[in-house]
Design a protein around this nucleic acid. Sequence first.
DNA 1: ATAGGGTTAG
Length: 594
Amino acid sequence: MNAKLSQQPDTFGFNGNRTLAQTSPYQILLRAGSHLKLLKQVHAHIITTGRNHHLPLLTKLATSAISSGAILYAQKLFLCAPTVDGFLLSSLITAASKFHFPLQTVLFYRHMLARNISPTNYTYTSVIKACAQLQDPRTGRVVHCHILTNGFSLDQFVEAALVSFYAKIRELKFARKMFDEMPQKSIVSWNSMISGYEQNGFADEAIMLFAKMRELGVQFDSATLVSVLSACADTGALELGSWVHDYVKSNPISLDVVLGTALINMYAKCGNVRKAQGVFELMDEPNVMAWTAMISGYGMHGFGKEAIDLFRLMINQGIYPNEITFVAVLSACAHAGLVQAGREAFAIMKNYGMMPGTEHHVCMVDMFGRMGLLSEAYHYIKDLFPVQPAPAVWTAMLGACKLHKNYDLGVEVADNLFAAEPDNAGHYVLLSNMYALAGQMERVEMVRNAAISKELKKPAGYSVIEIDQKAHLFSTGGMPHPESMAILQFLDELVQQIKAAGYVPVSEAIMHELEEEEKECALRYHSEKFAVAFGLLKTRQGVPIRIVKNLRICEDCHMAIKYISLVSKREICVRDKLRFHHFKDGSCSCKDFW
DNA sequence: ATAGGGTTAG
């Protein structure tokens, strides 16, 4: 609205009283758009012409102020208003919610209740959305009660807002119950539910619900597909992701920047960075998120130079990078060993008014550490003082000490990590390995005792491989795969073959198993070896094998899979917690910076 | 005289 005028504020103004006198105050307000300065001029005009008791004018003025971001101004207007009616309050509520002032939305709602003004379904959608943004379950539930008692629980919009609210406060079971019980499910409620699953880490449920949507013949839209693509990216479901892409191409769904970015992200995280590139290159006007997704995609595949070049191109095109862009760039430099480029990128952050945060620190330490610049990495951490390094920074440093076999420094770093986050079970293997390597057996014992007394369990590693659109999961924890005997037999043969080719198992550092039970299923092989063997058994020669793993790949599996790619003449692509490893002809794209 | 909703990307 008024885009033309709002882009040219200089052309607006009070050029003499004649213009003013001929224009109605409301018209002037509309023309002011969402320019606070102009709005204030109009406000002054309203006052000087004695119209500041006029509620409709004040209402429009207040909502315009909110749209310009001036929530305080709007609140003052409200407090100074001679009278208040339902119209003013509901306008304030919807505007405050729409322009992301959730706290004020709820405050205005309280005013509404205090004045015995009856809310409408419009009011409730805005207020519930605000509660979701605030992550405020209590207020949200109270408002839900108001909805029930006032008879708005069957309103399509209100219901969708409630499903979205419960999903966003991670009450997914309840959200699903509401969703299932809705007699009329709008497309937005489907989308809310699917996105709720995906955002909370339940990608499989998101995909299953989408499957149900298709089964029932429910129409879906671009927002649905965006969430589905994110779910595909989470689980590495390339086949479904590609289906979505094909669907978009052959149906009248516009490939806008959001959908395009979701596609880039999906292809990159499913191992096909060239396809991601193809989507990016076809985008009309990629914004900062699209550029960042592409840079990040290059980075996780080890294409550091491509990432840097794209970043420079982005800057040259006048796209303003944000914090996440810099994480993508620095991480790309770390994974490709581009120390100098990383330093330069880090240095220009301040030109964009940004302070490096934890994730940037982790990237820098990781980058120096991987390249063996341990002392530089360590000084980087020390120079953060008085900022206390986050545990993730110590983890990166510890990994570097292990990689470059500096056990003295490693012990010191491990002590810091243990002190910083004694309850994180994910660190225990790394910690006890480092202490064991340094011969500090009493510290190994300490970690072990801490784990036992706090009943901490290290997260179970698993690997997933998608075959004929079906995901097969291999895990040290849960259920064994139905064909595990045959797979194990094949794997044993495979290991004999790669040993003959020169593979020597990398002996694990002395590992203290935390529990006997774990030792029992401490199978001969990690899950990724199982998944690779299964993939070789189930797919034809020439078909690349793609594995998604939840933890980082270990040195031994990395070595073994290099040899497997050699003897089986197969391309094997493993996505681990941090990055991709493309194995081919006996070597890996990560250049052994696993 | 006045306005307005729930879902989606890095």
